[in-house]
């Protein structure tokens, strides 16, 4: 009831502002994401807080269980903009014309190799003993990338272990029934197995020195047709991120609701961990990590590394050139427009 009253109040405020600004109409924009992941929370926050309407947008959401069907659905123009993992983002760049226009978060900690409780200490003490073991992971994912980075850090080759590829849910089933000792998972699945079966993280992407970013993406033809909408979309996302970090407790309450809709129940402590371990980037930071003034940008390097991993796995014949699909053009649009820039930097 309270929320409804508030949203009505916000609505009235917007309407008033709209009249003042010359009655602008809301433009529809099709937004895609995956349910119950940290980087998708800003979409939910923006809806709850009325940021979309304030920016003149009316989002139509579609959600996907994983990055690959999400990318595939972009081919039929089912969505315009969205957030996804870095591996699907590179895949989308190579297969279709998907542009990466920003970074949702640094999820290097949120992708890890875990072991069941009974075996974890042994592996932690002596990572070399992983040699000859079976690891279950979701091939071609950020989880896979992190596990491979971990193996490399220990001086182990892909052929030193047996890798079985399965979906995240299957991995969790296998680990919970002791049919697999080692699994590659991402958050919040990591927290689920930590809490419910006492599994432990052996090595995360961060531990292995790999940066695993999450990508903000747009269909290239949409970006060309509606650059203004893309800029507004970015501004909404950035503002929601700011708000989340400025209002931690309220944001966690929203996360709880958001995760519940997505069918994930983890403890509040784990939710706080999500906030603590995943760096996000505001407008200035986004522009910085995408700046190509000194050659390749940070983002170029991260994504090209991931492209290299995908080539190594046989998914891509060539690593897509970063300049072809990573662009700060739309972040710059936000930066150049004083109104949007102020909007993106607001924390309320």
């Amino acid at each position: 009831m309270h929320a409804r009253l508030r949203s009505i109040a916000v609505g009235i405020a917007i309407a008033a502002a709209g009249i003042g600004a010359g009655a602008q109409q809301l433009t529809e924009i099709k937004v895609s994401f995956q349910p119950a992941v940290y980087w998708a929370l800003p979409f939910y926050v923006a809806t709850e807080k009325g940021f979309w309407a304030e920016a003149g947008l009316k989002p139509v959401f579609s959600t996907f269980p994983a990055g690959v069907p999400q990318i595939a659905a972009s081919a039929s123009k089912s969505w315009d903009v969205g957030g996804t993992g870095s591996v699907p983002a590179v895949l989308g760049a190579a297969r279709y014309s998907l542009l990466t226009i920003g970074i949702t978060n640094d999820e290097s900690v949120g992708n890890a190799l875990l072991a069941t409780g009974a075996k974890a200490d042994g592996f932690l003490k002596n990572p070399q003993s992983i040699k000859g073991q079976t690891i279950v992971l979701t091939a071609n994912s950020t989880g896979d990338y992190s596990v491979q980075s971990c193996l490399a850090k220990w001086g182990l080759k892909k052929t030193d272990v047996t890798i079985k590829s399965m979906g995240q849910a299957e991995i969790m089933s296998a680990m919970s029934s002791n049919n697999a000792d080692l699994g590659g998972l991402w958050a919040p699945n990591i927290y689920t197995v930590e809490e419910k079966i006492g599994a432990k993280v052996i090595c995360s992407g961060k531990d292995a020195g790999a940066i695993v970013p999450g990508a903000i993406v747009v269909r290239a033809d949409y970006a060309k047709e509606q650059p203004q909408n893309v800029a507004k979309f970015l501004a909404v996302y950035l503002r929601a991120l700011k708000w989340m970090n400025g209002h931690r407790n309220e944001a966690i309450a929203m996360m709880k609701k958001f995760y519940e809709i997505g069918g994930v129940t983890i403890s509040e402590a784990s939710m706080r961990k999500e906030f603590d371990t995943r760096p996000v980037f505001d407008l200035a930071a986004q522009l910085k990590i995408m700046n190509r003034a000194g050659g390749n940008s940070e983002v170029d390097k991260w994504m090209t590394q991931i492209g290299g991993f995908m080539k190594g796995a046989g998914t891509l014949p060539e690593v897509p050139a970063a300049s072809r699909y990573i662009t700060d053009e739309y972040m710059t649009l936000v930066d150049k427009d004083p109104k949007l820039k102020a909007f993106a930097n607001r924390a309320d």
Partner: peptide, 20 residues
């Protein structure tokens, strides 16, 4: 129901599985 994760009994089961 693996295509669009928004509703459906298949989706419910997959989510139940990932909740162990």
């Amino acid at each position: 129901e693996l295509i669009v994760a928004s509703s459906g009994i298949g989706y419910l089961m997959v989510k139940g599985q990932s909740n162990l």
